[in-house]
Design a binder for these strands. Structure first.
Lengths: 104, 104
DNA sequence: TCGGGTTACGCTTGCCGTAAGTATC
DNA sequence: GATACTTACGGCAAGCGTAACCCGA
């Protein structure tokens, strides 16, 4: 499974259109379209369909969006852990500083 | 977060060494090492440490491995959904076949 | 006619493999 | 000396951006 492409799809599903997704991700629209097409081909599952002048999720796309949401929620937990880890290391310095203060 | 690198790390954590991970992933050892180094640099978190003639997880690495396990469990759910989706489409043919049988 | 999505195409970046190096048993 | 991981380096595929095109309101 290509999780990079899934992330793009997840962003589209969250925002509702490709344009806003491209703005959020700082990636051009065509790049995103290509990734989605590639993902659909890889999975043999249609995820998006044209809707008016924009796009909409297919039924399978809706389910996939739910699963993707779950996955990237876990990713966010990991990001948070990493951030807390950095903060913890900073806290060590916060703890050291008072001790070191006299000398420098 | 680079989920590709995280996948490699997860495989290392599961197998306990880089060699078996490289065999499972069909990727060379050096390629994996490079990805892990890059990931550690990206996160500013040490994940692996030398241990004897192999490697071991750091404390942060252990926690990260747990989180990664959670994430890739969700990925497996997605894979399963995709498989079931294909199976469902096959089942449609299974359902059509008896009807069509007379004609071909 | 305009907003949004897709196709075409050239370029850059990132990932990988091979070969050589380092360390532990 | 053998096993396991790391560093160095060149090649190739994947991903991106720009430009042009298509379609529905």
């Amino acid at each position: 499974m290509n999780l990079h492409a899934l992330r793009l799809f997840h962003t589209i599903a969250s925002t509702g259109n490709v344009t806003r997704a491209s703005e959020l991700l700082n990636i051009s629209q065509p790049a995103i379209t290509a990734q989605i097409k590639k993902l659909e081909k890889e999975l043999s599952i249609p995820l998006l369909k044209p809707s008016g002048r924009g796009i909409a999720l297919t039924d399978a796309g809706e389910k996939m969006a739910l699963l993707a949401k779950r996955l990237f929620a876990v990713e966010q937990q990991i990001d948070q852990f990493c951030h807390e880890y950095s903060t913890a290391r900073t806290d060590i310095f916060d703890w050291l500083r008072p001790i070191c203060r006299p000398s420098f």
